[in-house]
């Protein structure tokens, strides 16, 4: 109060003839220039507003003017000042288990093919260098970029330690009972309640898979 009174008095007495504020004469911290008059603002930056609001002329306003005003997975359309669903740009970052990112459409899509398909031998995995390991197909790959989300391109080594091939692999057995791609994961996660992954403990995956 003292501050405002003193400031008001100074401005009134010392600057009665000119505009209270303009482009060259900014208002003091905590107020904003509206039609040449300094008015107390509710915000200075959008960080002082709720999510999906932004600071416009010192007032928190519905909408956005930066991605940081939007929740994860959405981005700000600055023309419409609305948060819009953001398309994927990277498989491993933006998509869920067993999905690839279509960077053109911005959509994650379910991986087709032999990824984690149960098998009895290599012949069940469609050829092309795909192999059957521990009862699941490991689809041939050169790097993680060739694999769906939550898979990694693992070197399979022989007993002498020589790399024989690379295959996309993960804990396939974790997911066979629960199809993660169909989960409304965001809702269920946000609730803070989530059951542990279904597991089959009889299998363990070492860091380097050994083939005989």
């Amino acid at each position: 109060m003292i501050f405002l009174w003193f400031l008001s008095a100074l401005l009134t007495l010392g600057c009665a003839d000119g505009p209270e504020c303009d482009a060259e004469t900014p208002c003091p911290f905590g107020s904003v220039c509206v039609e040449s008059v300094c008015e107390t603002n509710t915000c200075v930056t959008s960080a002082q507003c709720d999510m999906e609001q932004y600071c416009a002329d010192g007032v928190c306003t519905e909408g956005c003017d930066a991605d940081s005003d939007c929740y994860p997975g959405t981005a700000c359309d600055v023309e419409t000042t609305t948060c819009e669903a953001e398309g994927c740009s990277d498989t491993h970052t933006d998509c869920a288990y067993n999905e690839f990112c279509n960077e053109i459409s911005g959509e994650c899509f379910e991986a087709s093919g032999y990824y984690c398909q149960e098998c009895g031998g290599d012949a069940d995995c469609g050829g092309n260098g795909n192999t059957c390991y521990n009862g699941y197909c490991a689809v041939s790959c050169e790097s993680d970029n060739d694999c769906p989300s939550a898979y990694t391109c693992i070197p399979f080594v022989d007993l002498a330690g020589n790399i024989q091939y690379f295959g996309c692999y993960t804990y396939c057995w974790l997911f066979e009972d629960g199809d993660y791609s169909d989960l409304e994961s965001r809702d269920s996660m946000s609730s803070g309640v989530q059951e542990a992954l279904p597991v089959h403990l009889e299998l363990e995956l070492p860091e380097c898979l050994v083939v005989e």
């Binding site: 960080a47 002082q48 507003c49 709720d50 999510m51 929740y71 994860p72 997975g73 491993h92 970052t93 933006d94 998509c95 869920a96 288990y97 994650c108 993680d144 989300s149 939550a150 898979y151 990694t152 993960t170 804990y171 974790l174 997911f175 993660y180 994961s185 965001r186 996660m189 946000s190 803070g192 992954l197």
Partner: peptide, 27 residues
């Protein structure tokens, strides 16, 4: 190693932040 968790990163980000409420997005 890199993370091999089954959900998209957006989902994890949101889950962790919202443990502290909406204010955590701004702070």
């Amino acid at each position: 190693e890199d993370d091999m968790s089954p959900y998209a990163l957006d989902d994890y980000e949101r889950f962790f932040i919202e443990l502290k409420g909406d204010e955590a997005y701004r702070n």
